[in-house]
C-alpha cells in the first residue's frame, strides 16, 4: 500500500525555483531515503509534505490525504523531525514528551519511547544539558510521540560524532520494525545506503534517479578496484583480456585491477585458471558516493567528524 505520494511537485520562492519537478512514491513500511546536495530542494519537498508550505503545482498525498486541505488529519498521522527545530532550554525530556503527547488524539506511550530511544535515565534532564546525540534522540521521540504512521526525519545525524551516528542508525531500524514508514532526508551517502530500502536522488530540484541502493550503484556502473600480490610470475594479459577489466597497474609487486561489473569473480577466476595464488587480496568496493557523483555530476559532502554542541 502507498504511504506517501509526491507527483510533479513544483515550488518557487520569488524567482528562485526550489523544487522544479519532484515525483516519488513511498510504500508502507519502507525506509525511503531522499539524498541530494545542499540546496537540491530536499527540505522544501519535506516542508510541502509536512504542510508547512503550499506547493505552486503538483500533488501530494499522505495516506490518501492532502497536507494542506486535510491539514488536521495529516498532522495526526505524520510525525516530523525538522532540521533546525528546537525546544526551550529549560524544558525537561519528560515535560517535552508529555507536552507533545497532549497535542495528539491517540498518542503513543512516551515512557516506552523513552526506553526505546535510550533516554530513560535522562527523563528529568533539561534540554540544554543534553548532548547533541541525546537532543537528536529526543527530537526523534517527539516525532513519534503522536503514534504516527509515517515519520519524516530530516538531516538527523548532522553534527553528531561517528558513534552517535551509528547509534542513531540502529534506532531508525528499530523504529521501522515497529511498523512506521520512514522518509529519511540526508546528504550523507553512507547513511542513506545503510538504512534505505529505496532512495531518490534529488538534484537541482528534480529527481535524478529512484531505486534500491544496490541498483543505484549498479546503474551508475561504479568503478571497482581489486588489489593483490602474487608470489608466482603472472602475465598481465591474463587480466587485460577480461571483458570487465579496463586497466591493470603493477607497482612494487602490487597489482591493481580496475574495472566494472563482476570484477572480483572475473579476476579470481582468471587467477585460478593461471594457477596463481593471490595474497593480500582487497576490493575497493565503491558505493553510493560514486553513484551519487554519476547522477549529479558532483561529489557528495563528507560527514562532519566533530559533534557540535549548543
Amino acid at each position: 500500500m502507498t504511504a506517501l505520494e509526491v507527483r510533479n511537485l513544483h515550488k518557487r520562492y520569488g524567482r528562485h525555483v526550489a523544487v522544479e519537478d519532484v515525483s516519488f512514491t513511498v510504500e508502507e513500511g519502507e525506509i525511503f531515503g531522499v539524498i541530494g546536495p545542499n540546496g537540491a530542494g530536499k527540505t522544501t519537498t519535506v516542508e510541502c509534505i509536512a504542510g508547512l508550505r503550499t506547493p505552486d503545482s503538483g500533488a501530494i498525498s499522505v495516506l490518501g490525504l492532502d497536507p494542506i486541505r486535510d491539514r488536521a488529519e495529516v498532522r495526526e498521522r505524520l510525525g516530523v523531525q525538522l532540521q533546525e527545530s528546537g525546544f526551550p532550554d529549560a524544558i525537561t525530556v519528560a515535560e517535552a514528551l508529555e507536552l507533545y503527547s497532549s497535542y495528539y488524539r491517540n498518542p503513543a506511550d512516551w515512557r516506552e519511547l523513552v526506553e526505546l530511544l535510550g533516554l530513560a535515565d535522562k527523563r528529568d534532564t533539561r534540554y540544554k544539558a543534553l548532548s547533541g546525540g541525546q537532543k537528536q534522540r529526543l527530537s526523534i521521540a517527539l516525532a513519534l510521540v503522536g503514534g504516527p504512521r509515517i515519520a519524516i526525519l530530516d538531516e538527523l545525524t548532522t553534527g553528531l560524532d561517528p558513534q552517535a551516528r551509528r547509534d542513531t542508525w540502529n534506532l531508525i531500524a528499530r523504529v521501522r520494525d515497529t511498523g512506521v514508514t520512514i522518509l529519511l532526508v540526508t546528504h550523507f551517502m553512507d547513511e542513506a545506503e545503510r538504512l534505505s530500502d529505496r532512495i531518490a536522488v534529488i538534484d537541482g530540484g528534480r529527481v535524478a534517479a529512484v531505486d534500491t541502493p544496490a541498483a543505484l550503484i549498479a546503474q551508475a556502473n561504479a568503478v571497482q578496484r581489486v588489489r593483490f600480490r602474487v608470489r608466482q610470475p603472472l602475465d598481465g594479459r591474463v587480466l587485460t583480456g577480461l571483458p570487465d577489466v579496463t586497466d591493470v597497474q603493477i607497482t612494487e609487486g602490487r597489482w591493481t585491477v580496475t574495472g566494472s561489473g563482476q570484477l572480483l569473480s572475473s579476476v579470481a577466476g582468471a587467477l585460478a585458471r593461471a594457477q596463481v595464488v593471490a595474497e593480500d587480496l582487497r576490493v575497493d568496493r565503491h558505493g553510493l558516493d560514486d553513484a551519487f557523483e554519476a547522477f549529479t555530476g558532483r561529489a557528495p559532502e563528507s560527514p562532519e567528524p566533530l559533534q557540535k554542541e549548543g
Binding site: 527545530s85 525546544f87 497532549s102 503522536g146
Partner: peptide, 17 residues
C-alpha cells in the same frame, strides 16, 4: 523571539496544535 529563533514555533506547526 527565542521560540521563533529556535524553531519552537515552526516545530509546533507540524503538530495538530
Amino acid at each position: 523571539a527565542t521560540y521563533r529563533e529556535r524553531g519552537v514555533l515552526r516545530r509546533l506547526s507540524t503538530t495538530p496544535a
